[in-house]
Design a protein around this nucleic acid. Structure first.
Length: 116
DNA sequence: GCTCTGACGTCTA
DNA sequence: ATAGACGCCAGAG
């Protein structure tokens, strides 16, 4: 075949699947961030892509989307609302929130030690 | 093809 | 610690 694989970012739909795969690997009781998930998925500057991937996520798909928060350790607000739902899902598996609605990433962030 | 948008993150003041 | 500017990059129009 004449086509050679050349170095560079993977096709978007493939990148999206990688993102989903990373999110699926976040352990119960832990959380990760948009930026970190992007990195793990091979997208060093792909935080916004991770957000977009979640926005376009099939609602029927079984994926722990709620374990993704922003770099501040807080739940990101978005148009459709639903932050309270995400918080409840996290609390239901033991995640604790500070007074400022923040999660201690040094303790509950995944991968462990990533936020030290 | 071009421009604007945004569930983000990092740097500066 | 807080606020604002900038950079990034795929989607949407």
């Amino acid at each position: 075949m004449t086509q050679r694989s050349k170095p560079g970012p993977p096709p978007i739909n493939l990148a999206r699947e990688r993102i989903y795969s990373v999110i699926d690997s976040i352990p119960k009781g832990k959380v990760s961030t948009y930026g970190t998930v992007g990195k793990e998925a091979g997208l060093p500057r792909g935080a916004r892509q991770v957000a977009a991937a979640l926005r376009h996520l099939d609602p029927g798909r079984d994926l722990p989307w709620f374990r993704v928060v922003n770099s501040c350790g807080k739940i990101s607000e978005r148009p459709g609302g639903g932050e309270s739902v995400q918080r409840q899902l996290l609390e239901s598996e033991g995640i604790e929130f500070s007074k400022a609605h923040r999660i201690d990433l040094r303790r509950l962030g995944w991968p462990s030690g990533y936020f030290s």
